[in-house]
Nucleic acid binder design. Structure first.
Length: 364
DNA sequence: CAAGCGTGGGA
DNA sequence: TTCCCAAGCTT
């Protein structure tokens, strides 16, 4: 009896999806490379941000072979605005694995996709169900919310609650259209069964929804506890060779934005160690957020007479060996992180002002 | 298992 | 303005 209702709900869901789904670029036709990229790109971000980036990424790196062989700096630039740059680097590692170890043949199951760097339960399930018709449920934030409401389940963030959701989905996911079912559940969560102001009035699963019946949608699922915000003061060091108007870009090896190129970063506490290079702190500041850090960024300009940076300075700042001197125009195009771009923007505002230029000149 | 990791957009 | 958070993965 129960199963009949479930099957009916699944058919209603799929019918709704067939009729109302958004025409996303990666839904035009099934392409496992495109699905892989868009799923990783979509982790912890929003569709509005992903859409233009996805088009650009696929245009620049149309095949897994292109991705495996691309320059990492280009990769980071393609990823600019998406955050979590490790995802991009993992994509490249995955592409290298597929090209070099699997002879360019994509993994052919959920289990195999789990072996690919950056592919966890969610991403492997998405790819396997959508592209390989494997009957494995996707569990993301949207799906958790939908199931929480369908079953009037409040315990969804614990391990037990999570397996409860997984068990339920494993029961109801249809063998004939597992990928469409997964996408329909996520789509429902994104457009109808939203966190705020859910559209229960037009929901295809209204009749199956326990939270709707019990009038407890507001508390399903309960809010996830958030980490408290931490105020962090960060100094952005701009090594400037004034005669050539070039800037030193480094590879940051740890701390914020590790493994990305940009300006060296340091904290107030450590700044005094740089006194012998006569850093000039510019007036003004910018704000930025990284995870739970609420960052206040300040700029320190250090004018170098040679194109070299001291070993001790390098170690102190957690920098790799490679130093890239770039001119002002190139820099605007090549900075990949938002923090670096905000800092450079602030720097440019001040160095276009005569009074600051005089101060910097005096500092030589 | 909890902590760490970026960003842009919407409320 | 400020806060919150969105299709998670790794360690």
């Amino acid at each position: 009896m129960k199963k009949v209702l479930i099957d009916r709900g699944v058919r209603q869901l799929l019918a709704w999806y067939d009729r109302d789904r958004r025409p996303l670029p990666w839904r035009q036709q099934v392409n496992i490379y495109h699905t892989w990229i868009c799923e990783v790109m979509s982790q912890q971000t929003t569709l509005a941000v992903v859409l233009p980036k996805f088009a650009q990424f696929i245009q620049q790196l149309p095949t897994v072979d292109d991705l495996a062989n691309c320059d990492e700096e280009i990769l980071h630039q393609l990823w600019a605005g998406l955050g979590y740059y490790a995802r991009a680097r993992n994509l490249k590692k995955g592409a290298e694995f597929i090209v070099n170890r699997l002879n360019g043949r994509f993994p052919q199951s959920y289990r195999e996709w789990l072996q690919i760097p950056g592919c966890g339960d969610y991403t492997a399930a998405a790819i396997a169900s959508i592209c390989l018709n494997e009957k494995v449920p996707c569990i993301d934030g949207n799906v958790i919310r939908v199931v929480s409401r369908l079953l009037a389940l409040q315990d969804v963030w614990s391990t037990a609650g999570r397996s409860r959701i997984q068990d339920y989905l494993t029961q109801v996911i249809p063998s004939d259209r597992p990928g469409d079912f997964n996408q329909a559940m996520m789509e429902l969560g994104a457009t109808i069964c939203r966190k705020t102001k859910p559209r229960c009035d037009i929901c295809p699963l209204q009749m199956q929804c326990l939270a709707y019946a019990n009038n407890c949608i507001e508390i399903c699922p309960p809010k996830k506890p958030r980490r408290v915000l931490v105020d962090t003061e960060l100094f952005v060091l701009i090594f400037w060779h004034r005669e050539t108007d070039t800037f030193a870009i480094v590879e940051r090896t740890d701390g914020f934005l590790a493994k990305t190129r940009g300006f060296p970063l340091t904290i107030a506490h450590q700044l005094s160690k740089l006194d012998r290079w006569q850093p000039l702190q510019l007036p003004g500041k910018f704000t930025h957020a990284i995870a739970h850090h609420r960052i206040t960024g300040r700029i320190c300009v250090i004018q170098l007479n040679s194109n070299d940076i001291d070993i001790s300075m390098r170690q102190h700042l957690a920098l790799s060996k490679t130093l890239h001197w770039m001119n002002r125009l190139d820099l605007s195009a090549k900075l990949s992180t938002a923090l670096d771009r905000k800092a450079f923007q602030l720097f440019q505002n001040y160095t276009y002002s005569d009074s600051i230029c005089e101060q910097l000149a005096l500092n030589l």
